[in-house]
Every structure is written in C-alpha cells, then in structure tokens.
Design a protein around this nucleic acid. Structure first.
Lengths: 232, 232
DNA sequence: CAAATACGTTGATGTTGATCAATTCGCAAG
DNA sequence: CTTGCGAATTGATCAACATCAACGTATTTG
C-alpha cells in the first residue's frame, strides 16, 4: 500500500507544506518508503549519510554513545518530523536512530533533495525551516538541561509531548509513552529513579495519572505552573 | 576599508568555502559589513529575521532570557562562524547576539542568500553544512549538560575553545577569555563559583595557568584525561 | 587619583538529585 | 500456570554542586 505525498495526511506537517500538486508529484518520485519493527535502527552513528527521513507513522529516539560508553538520548521524534539532518555536516550520521514502535519512514535521497530544492523555492524554504527548527529545539533542550530542576524538566517534557500529540490530532491529555523511564532520564539529564519519583509525586498531587506507560494529563495548568515557579 | 570575500582570510572557514572566483563576486555583492562595539547587540530575541551574519573579526555570545528572567547563554561564536540561523524557522530571532569585544560581521540578506544558493550548488551545500554543524554542536552541548560533571564540563569547554583558536591560526595554548565566569557558568549549566573553583583546582594541579581572563593550557592531555574518567 | 563598581576567589553550610538496595509489577516464553 | 526478566517503584544514604557570605582584585568613571 503506497501513499503518495499528495494524499498523505501529514503533508501539512512535513517537508511538503506549501507545495502545489505538480511539485508534490516531483517530491513523490523521489521518496521511497521503509518499514521498521520496534527496536530496529534506521541508521547508526558512523553510517555514511545519504538520505534524510520523514516519519510517516511510529515513534523514534535518537541517541549517541559517549566515549565512556553511556547512551545519551538526544531526542524523541514522531510522525511528520524529520530524521537525519545531523549527517549533512560530515557526510556521516553522528547519532543512532531507533524505532520505539513499529514505524514507517519516507526516505529522501539527499542529493536528489538538494537538486529538487534548487528548483522548487518553497521546498527549499521548507527544508531550511526544518533545519532551523531543529536548531531551536536543541537550544530549548539546552535551556532545560542548563537551568531547570528535575521536576521542572519532567513537567516540561510531558507538556511538550502533549502539545505535539495535539498538533497531530491525537489526544493531548492521554497517551502511551513509547520510551522507558531510563530513556526519559537520559534525555532530561536525570536518573530513572528521579523520573519515577517525579511521576509519583505528580500523581499524588493530582496533576497526572500514571499507569506504567499510560499517562493522563489531569491538570495541565498545574504542570505549567511548575515551570515558572522560580525556586532560587 | 573593505575586504572582499575573495580576499578574506576566512574564506576557507566561512560560507565561501569551495566557491570559484565568479561565484565569490556574487557573494560579495550581497554582503554588507557592520561593526559593533563591545557590549552592542547584533540582534535581539523577537527581532524580525532578515539576515544571517558571518563573523569577520571579534567574539560573540548568544543568549536567551528564560521566563523567569534568567539569562542563559546558548553559545560563544568567533571569526568565521555564522550567527542568526535560529531565526529562519519562525522569521524572528529567538536569541540575543551580543559582541563580547569590538567586532565586525558580514551581513547577508536571507532572501538573497536563498536566491543565490538556488543558483550556486556549492553555496547551497556549504550553507546546509553550516546549519547541520550547528545542530551537531548543540547536540554535543546537550551531552555535556546531560552527562558530564562540573570539572569535565569545564575541561571540555577549555579544550573546545583551544581547538577553535588553533583552527583560526591563533595560539591554542594561551588566550584571553572574552566572557565572564558567570557567562561560562550559564553556558555550562553551572554557577560562577563552581567555574572559579574548577579553574583554581586545574591551576593547582598544573593543568592550566589562570590570571583572570588570561588562560594558558599547560597540560592538554591532562585535561583530556578528565573527560574519559568515568566516575560512576 | 580617588571612588565606585564589576568581576573573581575562597570558605562554610545546605539541598538536590545520584547512588545503592530491596521489592513489586507486567509481560513473554516454556 | 509458572518461571524468568526487564521495567518501575520506593526507601535510605551520600556526594556534588548551589547557596550564602566575606573579602580581594581589576577596571571604569568622575
């Protein structure tokens, strides 16, 4: 079953934003689909870079192995988001991308994307915006890691997930976490026990419902209030 | 005094890498210079985005004011590096860029850069590599903030500065810090006292020389050893 | 030059989140 | 159903870094 870009329900989130039909067909010709099972890796650090990927369905994490052999998660990605842009700079991927559930991606060969974006102005603009958005996203995380306390980080994390679910038409108030507490902790610069404790605390305070990986946001304003509450 | 891209000593670091003479002239036509005094801001968060900037001389910091009104430094930039790419995503700058010493930048109107990079393939490629490099840089900082201890962070910071000085033909073993301890701390997710203490400790151990902002790297290998020394 | 101010260093104490450890829960395989 | 194992929860203790505070040293300004 093949879904063309022009038919894709994500075309307003994806690189295809703002393209007319004719240009969508050209994008289509370039794209091939790839399915991944849970746990499978889309690419690994060190792999040669030759394509970027738009997530059609599913959920991914990206991570890096530090010199000491510790895994550090650098991001979680969901439908409509782009994977692989880190590889452009050195022609090799610098992180691993792993499917956290069965997923499907649209593979776009990078040299073709370059070529096409020289001819389609709005594709060029859209691609640049995606790169820039990734920069801004990373900087938000730097702020989180550099200036927030454990509970603030976790509140921010939940609100961010919730907001991204909403944009995609899913419930913003209840969802399944696809990642473990350890992966959340790695992403947020915390240990898994700290993540677990914060979940329990929020639960006790009636801010969220927690049943393993199933989360309900019961009081989003309460969570937001945690963010602005300057402690020092 | 006007320095053309084709004459610029930074053309191998800057967007101009790999352009032939004819293309360099086109780039030249697009660029205007701007001088800033120490403390002056190149752009502010919220300003409308219409250009990116290549640093010709000088030293900058970028920072963001968090909701609580705290300044968080997101980066330090030196000659040959590009400022402003965060603005592409929303057409507004998301951070402030401030000169930490008297500086000069090359202003490139973004719409013209887009136009030109549709015609000059190697400019397009170079621009994409710069964006990607920024993504990779931010992710390195995420790793630093998420997994390193105070002394490791500061060792990594000094080695990174040193390495960037070397690339630019300056001494890698002695240099003036352009930023305060507080700005370093903000960048590294530490308090200024912690930065100061680490400098003193490294000094006592003979790893570096410290006289206020004048730093000498006395034992680079010793600093590197701190990075791999897994504590837990 | 004097005074003021920003920046930096150092010490004593406190708090946050890491670490270590025990237990429970949930799911998959036999 | 039982066993086994990864994941999650919870408690007790500890270490790293923040905080508070005092003092010293540059740099700027009138």
């Amino acid at each position: 079953m093949r879904v063309a870009c022009s038919e894709c329900n994500l075309r307003e989130l994806c690189l295809a934003v703002g393209l007319d039909d004719e240009d969508l067909y050209k994008l289509d010709d370039m794209v091939t689909k790839r399915k991944l099972k849970r746990g499978q890796q889309l690419y690994r650090a060190g792999d040669s870079f030759d394509a970027i990927y738009a997530i059609r369905t599913g959920f991914f994490k990206t991570d890096i192995l530090t010199e000491e052999g510790l895994e550090q998660v650098t991001g979680f990605q969901m439908a409509g988001e782009i994977l692989g842009m880190d590889g452009i700079s050195t022609d090799r991927h610098v992180c691993n991308a792993t499917a956290l559930e069965d997923s499907e991606v649209c593979l776009m060969p990078y040299d073709q994307l370059e070529e096409l974006s020289r001819h389609i102005k709005s594709l060029q603009q859209q691609f640049h915006k995606f790169m820039s958005r990734e920069i801004v996203r990373d900087q938000s995380l730097m702020i989180l890691l550099g200036s927030m306390r454990a509970e603030e980080r976790i509140a921010a994390f939940l609100l961010n997930l919730s907001q991204r679910m909403r944009v995609r038409g899913y419930s913003a108030s209840e969802f399944h976490l696809r990642m473990t507490r350890e992966e959340i902790g790695s992403y947020l610069g915390l240990k898994l026990e700290t993540v677990s404790r914060a979940f329990s605390k929020f639960h006790d305070e009636g801010l969220i419902g927690v049943q393993q990986k199933y989360i309900r946001i019961l009081n989003a304003d309460g969570l937001k209030a945690l963010l602005n509450h300057t402690p020092s």
